[in-house]
């Protein structure tokens, strides 16, 4: 299977690989997928407590090249966005940006799930 140039770019030079301190109250962590399914994504966001803007994002992904590229792109996109803006990122936008073939659409779904999971983790830890 031939990969799109953008997938190869993100795979070869992934943006924002790494981990944030998950005990930090300003950090939200999303862990989605399962090892048996062949892909697991961990996506973390760091939120400015004043502005509620996402000031940093990191990921680690176990999965195919398209899964790595989808999560790398997701971290790029959420950075600088407000939580609400990040919530509205759709997997179809990722598909389009990376020119993912139909068999790889689930990679983009997982990336969208990872963003939402990270935000929901942040929110649940900052309630009350």
């Amino acid at each position: 299977m031939a990969y799109s140039e953008k997938v190869i770019d993100h795979y070869s030079e992934p943006r924002n690989v790494g981990s944030l301190d998950k005990s930090d109250l300003n950090v939200g962590t999303g862990l989605v997928g399962a090892p048996e399914c062949g892909d697991v994504m961990k996506l973390q966001i760091q939120v400015d407590p004043e502005t509620k803007q996402i000031i940093d994002a990191k990921f680690k992904t176990f999965g195919c090249g398209s899964a790595i590229a989808s999560s790398s792109l997701a971290t790029e996109w959420v950075k600088g966005k407000s939580i609400d803006e990040a919530m509205s990122i759709q997997n179809t936008e990722i598909v389009e940006e990376l020119s993912l073939p139909p068999v790889k659409i689930h990679c983009s779904v997982l990336a969208e799930d990872a963003i939402k999971a990270a935000i929901s983790d942040y929110k649940s830890r900052n309630e009350g």
Binding site: V32, G33, A34, V40, K60, T61, H106
Partner: peptide, 22 residues
Amino acid sequence: MSPLYEMVKEGVDLSTVQWASH
């Protein structure tokens, strides 16, 4: 860049994790 390798190195038993399967 593998979250699984990181978890294993942190001493997490992956079989005990509740995975969000898809």
